[in-house]
Design a protein around this nucleic acid. Sequence first.
DNA 1: AGTTCTAAATTGGTTAACCAAATTGGTTGA
DNA 2: TCAACCAATTTGGTTAACCAATTTAGAACT
Lengths: 235, 235
Amino acid sequence: MKIDILPKNENDVIQKDIISKIRDFINYKNLEPGDKLPSERKLSEKFEVSRSNVREAIQTLEFYGLLISKPQSGTFIADIGPVAMNGMITDILRLEKADFKSLVETRILLELKTVKLASLRRTDEDLKQIEEALDAYSAKVENGENAVQEDLLFHLAIAKACGNSTINTFMLTITPEIITNFTKYHVCDKNIAFIGIQEHRDIYEAIKKQDPQLAKEKMKVHFKMLYQYCYNIKN
Amino acid sequence: MKIDILPKNENDVIQKDIISKIRDFINYKNLEPGDKLPSERKLSEKFEVSRSNVREAIQTLEFYGLLISKPQSGTFIADIGPVAMNGMITDILRLEKADFKSLVETRILLELKTVKLASLRRTDEDLKQIEEALDAYSAKVENGENAVQEDLLFHLAIAKACGNSTINTFMLTITPEIITNFTKYHVCDKNIAFIGIQEHRDIYEAIKKQDPQLAKEKMKVHFKMLYQYCYNIKN
DNA sequence: AGTTCTAAATTGGTTAACCAAATTGGTTGA
DNA sequence: TCAACCAATTTGGTTAACCAATTTAGAACT
C-alpha cells in the first residue's frame, strides 16, 4: 500500500520559481501596462528552464488576468499598474491548497447569497430545473441510496438560477472538493438524508414563492448541522 | 484601428468540444470514480484532434477537480459519481465570462465577510501589513496621484488576514478584472479618493479593535457608492 | 521626404519524436 | 501453486523542430 503524502509536485515548485522570476524581471525593467515581455524562448534561456515550463507559468498568470498573450505577437502586461502587479503575484505565490474548513465556510457564505438572489431573479425555466434536481434527490433518498451527488446538483441548480456568473463559477470550483471531503470525513450519512428532503423542499418552496428572506432562513436551517460539524474539525 | 470584439478564441471552441466529447465518453462507458480514461494519444485519435488539445481539455477538467492525471500511469476519474460528473461538466461548458455587475456584487459579498473574519482572526503581523497598505494608499492620494492599485492592495491585505484560503483565492481572481473595469468605466475618480482615506482608516481601526460588526458597517459605508454605481450599469 | 511595398526576422502555437517512470504479462524458480 | 523477477509495453511529460501569422526594417518609388 503506497502512501503518497505530499508528492509536493516538483513541477509546482519550479513553476512558482519561474513566476517569481517573471515578477522580478517586471520590477527590474519597470514594465508597465501594455509593455511586452521577452519571448518565451528568451525567457526560457534567461531562466535556464524549458520553454514549456515558461508557457505554463505564463498561462497561470494569464488565468489571474495579469498577463495577456497574443499569438504571433507576444506576451503583454495587463492593464494593471506595477504596484498591484507586484502585490498580486506575491499573493499568488503564497496561495496554499484550500482546507476543508475554508471550503465549507465559503460554501455557506455563497449559498446564503445564491438562494436570496435565486428567489429574486429566477426564471420559470430555472425553477423547473431546480424542481427536477429536487425530485432526483428525493427519489434516490427514498430508495435508500446514497444521494450526495443529487444533493449537490440541487444546490448547483440554485446557483445557476442566481443570475451571478461569478458566484456560479465559484460554486462549481469548490463543489468537487466539497464532495471529496464529505466522503472522506463521512459527512452526510444516510440518517441525515431523510431530514434533507424536507429541508430541500422548504428551500425550493421559498424560491418558488420568490421570498428571499424565507429562502435564506431555510438554507440556514439546512446548513445548521454542517456548520457545527465544520467547526469541530481539527485540520 | 483594429477592433477585436469577441475574437471568440477558436481554441476555446474546440476545447469545449473536446470536453463535451470526454463527458459523452464517460457516460457511454459508465466510467466511475477511480476508472482510467484512455490515454491522451488514443483520445486525440478517437476525437480526431491534436494531442495537445486533449491535454488542455484534461487540464481544465483537472482544475475543476473532475479528473486526476498521474505521470506515467494515466488519467483517472475523480472521486465524484457519474451524476455529479455529468452535471458539473455540463455546467462548466455553459460558463460565460463574468460581467462587471456580477463581479462587483460578488466582491461586496466576499469583502463584507473578509472584514468580519479579519477582525476576529487577524494576527499582529496581519494588522501591520494592513496598516502599511493603508499608509501607501493615503500617501498616494494626498500626493494627488491615482491610487486605484494601492486601494485594492489594502483590500487584499484584509482578505489575506481573514484566515480563509478559499475566499482569499477568490478575491485574487476577481481583483484584476475589477481593476480593468474600474479604469474602463471610470469608477473611483480622484474626488472620491479623499473620502476613501477616512473610510479606509475607519475599517482599519475596526479591525484593530477586533470589532467585526463595526468593521462590516464601515465596509458597507465604503461600498455604498460602488453599490449604487454597480446597479446602474447597463451591461 | 514621405509613402508603399516586400522580404526577413520574430512571435506564440502546433506537431511529432523522444524520455523515464510505471504498469503489465509472462517466465522462472522454489 | 505462487511469489519473484524481468523485459516489453504503455503512460504522461518533455524537448525540439516546424508553422503560419505578425511585426519589422529598409528598399523602392513617387
